[in-house]
């Protein structure tokens, strides 16, 4: 009985987090929700008797993908401010072409 409750809660949590991550207006929040989605996925793999997949997901789904997304978001945000000298020269010669 208890494991059904846990599985149901985990499944609902996964769907809810995915929905929130895909609809939150704030992109930063969306990515952080996606992080937690990856962590719950790792739990789901453990529940499904797939510890190998859980290890890979914990390192990649919950860590690396989120880091990549946040880094891309940071690059989008910093390029919003053309006054910034560091990103300015990197982007400008691309925009001119």
């Amino acid at each position: 009985m208890l494991h059904w409750a846990f599985d149901g809660l985990l499944g609902t949590g996964l769907l809810w987090l995915a929905w929130r991550a895909l609809t939150t207006p704030d992109l930063f929040k969306a990515i952080v929700l996606f992080f937690s989605f990856g962590l719950l996925m790792a739990l789901a793999w453990v529940r499904l008797n797939a510890p190998d997949v859980a290890l890979a997901e914990a390192a990649i789904g919950a860590g690396l993908t989120g880091a990549l997304l946040l880094a891309a978001l940071a690059r989008l945000d910093t390029s919003n401010q053309p006054a910034n000298p560091v990103t300015g020269d990197g982007e400008s010669d691309l925009v001119d072409h």
Binding site: P51, D52, A54, L55, A56, A59, I60, G63, L64, A67
Partner: peptide, 29 residues
């Protein structure tokens, strides 16, 4: 450890590689 233990227990090249990649990302950050 993950690489070595992967022969007989959960673990292996992919898991070890992603942990190594995470270390690289941390160092870059």
């Amino acid at each position: 450890y993950l690489l070595w233990v992967g022969a007989d227990a959960p673990g292996g090249a992919f898991q070890a590689g992603s942990v190594l990649g995470a270390a690289g990302v941390l160092l870059q950050l």
